[in-house]
Design a binder for these strands. Structure first.
Lengths: 334, 334
DNA sequence: TTATTCCGTGAAAGCGGTTTCGCGGGTAGT
DNA sequence: ACTACCCGCGAAACCGCTTTCACGGAATAA
């Protein structure tokens, strides 16, 4: 079937008794059009039910009104509700400014990968990166003039706008809490250590140890990948190599839950014999048995901050990096 | 900064020594172009790094290559991992066919609402609906010739292509299982009864009762809204009005978890004193304590089936509705 | 050999907007 | 009254493709 026929500028112009250029000026907020003519245009739009064709506008203006939100991972990340929540924060801010979100969940890869190709295609007016294993693509796109925001502190000292959560502070207070609860041997299950967030959380854990006058052995530091399964795998290994382990800080809630599953199945009660803290404060943290002590980050605010930084750039305004605080939420598991 | 300058057909045509129409014919798979000329075009594309401008192509052809995936809800649905998983199934199938997904999570509302406006705007070549409280918009769009697929059985007998899970059979076997475990008084917490899925799950529950020669009292049938909080609220009420309750079938895993939280906090052990079954088999079902007995639906396959039905329509092929089976997964809670 | 048909290809119109440049009328200054 | 400047507005070029129509050469049939 033929697509629905909808009025164009030509019809609006004829109805209002003006030119198409005037219609364009009025609908795009040009204040120089005589108020009486402008009102005639608005009346015609109302009467005829006109809607702008965004495809034609994008071709003519060179701007699509789309902002890419890039998650350097695969679609299984959506089993972690963090991503839906943070994305909703970004989308709300962009939508308030007449922009739309294009969500890209794929490995960012090299300069000739799928994500790079898409971002260079001119289809988006800017890009917000959520997970980064390397700054190579980001630096390349910045040189080409694409407005960018990244979440997480950049690897290099490039002048890239970013928002972040206080990873170091959150991990530090989680580890301090475990120690204050009497834990003598505390392990960490990190995220992918290629990301700055995982590094900063590890640094917070190490700083808490330095301040208590101890240093954890290398086998207490496990590199996970934020997945439930990696939490389980490392918990298993920790029990084998450290039977006297009495505390674990996992760098996200999913890995914390994986660890708890293993400990409980091994007959080690949580928090009776071993205490566990996570990071994020996802719903899974609240509903688990035992409910999870965790470092809460304001995920909606993180998304909104990223969106606001993008809007500021597109409007040619000044901006500063934004670091959001964390809060340790004490529940049953520690 | 000015957008990156990229070669257009004019440049490709000049380099290959052909017209722009020929370039368009070659790149769109027209077999009538002389093979030598066609090869010269492909060589020029390779040499110059040409990428099609999809905005210009959409304007010229009247097709955008975008398919809307509509979830009649708000963004909090992403706290339920069902949605990320089912969407990934759809996206994979569309991408294999050169199409892209536009995800819309918003109340569908009336014919003059935001979703309706967008779908009538000509920006998408088709739409897949995931939750529907009413067929009004779908029937309207079908009349206008927009290719459609819905998940869930349509309310009316309209000739709308759909995919579904066997809701009736899943609920029936869940309720039968509770009865076979000795449960004498089984409640149900439904989803929004305006959706056909929730109705069918209720019907399955009622059929299992009919076959056992009993009928549940009306106060054992609670209408939830698939949220964790509604599961808790109805569980609280059920305990008050039915102290001898010994079984609950919840129409999704989140409500089941909400119910378990309330029962455990009230000192009723699961499954010792009261057995609980959910629906979906989300990760939350596996990680909870106790782990959740649930009706597993193949959510990826549901998404892929919806995508395949859309592709068939766009290609003008015949198609049948697709009903996917369920499987009762026995864990600790029942 | 001549006439007719077919087909590959190029020129250009069009898709629906944005934006530029020039024109004419009005206003201000001398 | 005349001159210079300003500004609102319209005509039309342009954005980068797709597709239509017409042309010329080749092939086929009479």
């Amino acid at each position: 079937m033929a697509p629905l026929l909808r009025p164009t500028y030509a019809v609006i112009a004829k109805t209002a008794g003006v030119s198409e250029a005037t219609v364009s000026r009025v609908l795009n907020g040009d204040e120089s059009v005589h108020p009486d003519r402008a009102q005639r245009v608005r009346d015609a739009v109302e009467e005829l039910g006109y809607k702008k064709n965004r495809v034609a506008s994008a071709l003519a203006s060179g701007r699509t009104g789309l902002i890419a939100v890039v998650i350097d991972d695969d679609l299984s990340v959506f089993s972690d509700p963090f991503w839906g929540t943070v994305t909703s924060g970004v989308s709300r801010v962009l939508q308030e400014n007449g922009l739309h979100t294009v969500l890209m969940v794929a490995p960012v890869g090299a300069l000739d990968g799928g994500v790079a190709h898409y971002l260079k295609s001119g289809e988006v007016d800017g890009a917000i990166f959520f997970v980064l294993h390397s700054d190579i693509l980001v630096n390349h796109l910045k040189k080409q003039g694409l407005p960018l925001v990244i979440t997480g502190t950049p690897h290099s000292n490039a002048d890239i706008p970013f928002v972040d959560t206080d990873n170091f502070g959150g991990a530090y207070s989680a580890t301090k809490h475990l120690m204050s609860q009497g834990c003598k041997k505390v392990a960490i299950i990190t995220g992918d250590i290629g990301t700055t967030a995982a590094k900063q959380r590890l640094d917070g854990y190490l700083q808490a140890h330095r301040e208590s006058g101890t240093l954890p052995s290398k086998s207490l530091i496990c590199e996970g990948d934020y997945s439930f399964e990696s939490g389980k795998a490392h918990a298993q290994k920790l029990l084998e190599t450290h039977p006297d382990l009495d505390g674990v800080f996992a760098s996200n809630d999913l890995m914390a839950m994986g660890a708890i599953t293993v400990f409980e199945n091994a007959g080690k009660s949580v928090p009776g014999q071993i205490r566990v803290v996570g990071f994020d404060d996802a719903l899974i943290a609240q509903t688990s048995r035992p409910s999870l002590t965790t470092v809460r980050q304001d995920v909606v605010a993180l998304g909104e901050a990223a969106g606001s930084l993008m809007i500021a750039q597109l409007n040619g305004q000044d901006f500063e990096p934004i670091i959001l605080p964390t809060e340790l939420v004490i529940r049953e598991s520690a």
